[in-house]
Write a protein that binds this DNA or RNA. Structure first.
Lengths: 251, 251
DNA sequence: TAGTGGTCTAGACCACCTA
DNA sequence: AGGTGGTCTAGACCACTAT
């Protein structure tokens, strides 16, 4: 059962992304929305709070809410798996394993996964789609100890994170993320249905157990325009730093 | 006059950071807090929602809230200005203003900068280089009240952040960042010396004063390969608790 | 089973914006 | 001056947790 406010947020989000409300345009007042959705003002406020947290709308006391943009944004404050994030945004997400095979870890993989070079790893190539459109290409290397559980998953498994939790009780924590832009290679272009050389948003990450044991190392490439990462920060602490590109050669 | 819920959030935050509640310990129930602060449950919920957004506490339906950490570093990040970061990394950084003019804020700009539509803003196009190579194109919109200070800077000012601090005592905090990949447009390509359509890493951000007053809204485009954003979800400070609730299927 | 957080309602007053 | 969002109250029911 979906919460009432989540449903309202979803409808408004769709309307914004569909273009019913232009960027810069006003949203209906809370009172109007309450009438339209037959809900109380409190529930409507919960709904628009969701949109505000997603950066879709802004507000100023006394004036109507303004549409700020129409793009999906993925917040790092709550890093969920792709499937979980997509579903929470009301998207229809599908996935498909294109390739899966074991091999020996090379030196870089071994270092990232805290293994010895030559230890077995499982390499998986997975394509994921939103609303049937391919948007994300994942090249993941799993540590050998988790490989059997991953191999037992169906090829069209929607959420690997969730399946591994339910199957073997594995909980993922997230370690370090590297984010940059790259040009689509030949394989990228073919699988994501874009032209070769077109922009992709790349996220490379290590996932660990909550105890810090590395589980996977992944190179995820998003089609440009399909998703946006969102980060909040202040002058106090620093999870986010820039690094020079040539220090980290790509895979 | 601060809001009631903000005051309650502040008291709870101080108690947590002071160590009245250990990491992993339970917070009093909403009902208890409502009695203690002589407020309604709704107001208490607003207060703890603030702490949850800061990553200080987590919650699961049916169980009491848990203290996750003592520092706001969880969901908050520090981001230095480009010049400060580059110099700290030992790079030779230069910058140049290519365009600068005042105009009226449109609806979206006004909302982002907490201005009224039509208020004056200052639009600046700035190109920045590392070791003489152009790597970053900044399209910035400054709120009108800071425009005179910005206009008084030399066109080749190395660090705007530092200059504004030394000139008018303005301290920047950072708000929300949106990161994605885009294709270089004609102007982008010419100024960054790349081919049109080639990948750029785009960062859009709002900068505010520490009090939360918006100062600028900027669209920064980095040449692919020149920089990488790195984000650490400090696993150590994040004691296991949270994920279990999140991983359960929500619908 | 009792307690707790998640959700929702139907009011209310205020500060602020628009006209 | 009237509309709007920001805040607050005092209830209510439900799903889930803990015991």
């Amino acid at each position: 059962m979906t919460a009432r406010y989540a449903g309202i947020a979803g409808e408004l989000r769709e309307a914004i992304m569909r273009g019913d409300y232009d960027v810069g345009a006003q949203l209906p007042s809370e009172a109007e929305l309450a009438v339209r959705f037959a809900a109380s003002r409190g529930t409507v406020r919960q709904a628009v709070a969701v949109l505000a947290a997603e950066g879709l709308v802004g507000s100023r006391q006394g004036a109507r809410r303004i549409v700020l943009g129409r793009e999906r944004s993925q917040s790092f404050a709550e890093l969920h798996s792709f499937a979980q994030w997509a579903r929470s945004m009301g998207h229809r997400v599908t996935g498909r394993v294109l390739e899966q095979r074991r091999r020996a870890a090379d030196a870089a993989e071994a270092a990232r996964l805290a293994l010895r070079p030559g230890d077995a790893v499982l390499r998986v190539l997975r394509l994921r789609s939103l609303e049937g459109e391919p948007v994300l290409l994942e090249r993941t290397v799993y540590a050998g100890w988790i490989a059997p559980a991953v191999e037992s998953l169906p090829a069209d498994c929607e959420s690997v994170t969730q399946a591994l939790y339910e199957g073997v009780g594995l909980v993922f924590a997230y370690g370090e993320h590297l984010i940059d832009a790259v040009a689509a290679g030949t394989e990228d272009a073919r699988l994501l249905s874009v032209r070769r050389g077109s922009p992709l948003l790349r996220q490379r990450r290590v996932t660990t157990t909550p105890e810090g044991r590395p589980v996977e190392w992944s190179d995820d490439r998003y089609r440009a325009g399909s998703v946006t990462f969102s980060i909040r920060n202040s002058v106090d602490a620093n999870p986010l730093v820039r690094q020079v590109g040539d220090l980290r050669p790509s895979s």
